[in-house]
Simulated scan of single mutants.
Amino acid sequence: MGGQFSRDRPRFNDTLDVIKFLCKDLWTLVFRKQIDNLKTNHRGVYVLTDNAFRPFSRMSAEVSSQAVIRAQPFLWFPCGIVRGALAALGITATVHAETSELPGAVFQIKTVASAAAGAGAAPGVAGVKS
């Protein structure tokens, strides 16, 4: 996926460029919209927020903790897409997603170097202008 889709683009300079590509181009290709917010601690942790995650669009009418619990399995496939795209572009990472309020979803990406160093996402996460 990464090779053909990114063939006509200049090479990425760093991991942040790859994450921006994922948030803009790949997310638009897969979910027909860009990620709403990208934050990073600049140590290999990236938090992507989609305030209107398309797979949850039909679930959003039901507001309850049970709806949020039932929505969690719908995040597994997008996590796999993100992890696979990153791997195809040479970045090994873990991807975790959660939702606390439908139809929003938050994806946390930790590159292997940052996961090994034990970097956390919550403290010191800064916004990134794309």
Rank of each mutant, 00 (worst) to 15 (best):
T94I: 03
N37M: 08
I109Q: 10
T99S: 15
C23T: 05
H42S: 13
R70I: 00
A119P: 00
S65A: 11
S64E: 04
V63G: 05
R32M: 07
L89A: 13
K110W: 08
F107I: 06
P73L: 09
S130W: 13
N37Y: 03
A119M: 07
A93W: 01
I109V: 15
A117Q: 10
T94L: 13
S60G: 00
F53N: 12
A52Q: 05
T92Q: 11
E98I: 00
L26E: 10
K24H: 04
Q34Y: 03
V68L: 06
T94V: 13
D8N: 14
L102C: 01
V95G: 11
P123G: 03
P10Q: 12
T99W: 05
D36V: 02
K33P: 02
R7S: 08
L26Q: 09
Y46C: 04
I35S: 14
G127R: 06
A71D: 09
K33S: 14
T28R: 11
W76F: 10
N41M: 03
V95I: 11
R32G: 02
Q4W: 10
N41V: 01
V30T: 11
N13A: 15
G2D: 13
P103N: 14
D8P: 04
R11W: 04
N13R: 14
L75H: 12
R54T: 14
A67L: 06
T99P: 12
A87Y: 02
D36E: 08
C23W: 02
K129L: 03
A71H: 12
L38N: 13
W27L: 01
K39C: 09
G84P: 05
K110A: 11
R43E: 15
H96R: 14
A61Q: 10
V30S: 06
H96P: 00
G104C: 07
A115K: 04
F74R: 14
G127E: 05
T49Q: 14
S60M: 15
R54K: 13
S64L: 11
G124R: 04
V95S: 09
D25Q: 10
Q34N: 14
L26S: 04
E98Q: 15
M1I: 11
T28H: 10
A119F: 06
L48M: 15
W27R: 05
S57P: 00
R7N: 06
Q4C: 09
S130C: 01
V125T: 14
C79Y: 05
Y46I: 10
V125F: 00
N51A: 12
L102W: 10
Y46T: 07
D25A: 02
K33T: 11
I69Y: 12
F77V: 08
V106I: 12
V106N: 06
P123T: 01
L22D: 04
P55S: 12
R9G: 00
W27K: 00
I19R: 03
P55V: 05
K39L: 12
A88E: 15
F53R: 06
V106H: 02
P10H: 07
K33M: 02
A97V: 09
D36A: 08
G118E: 07
S6Q: 08
F53G: 12
V30F: 06
Q34D: 08
G118M: 03
I91N: 07
L89M: 15
A115C: 00
G120I: 08
A121T: 00
V68G: 08
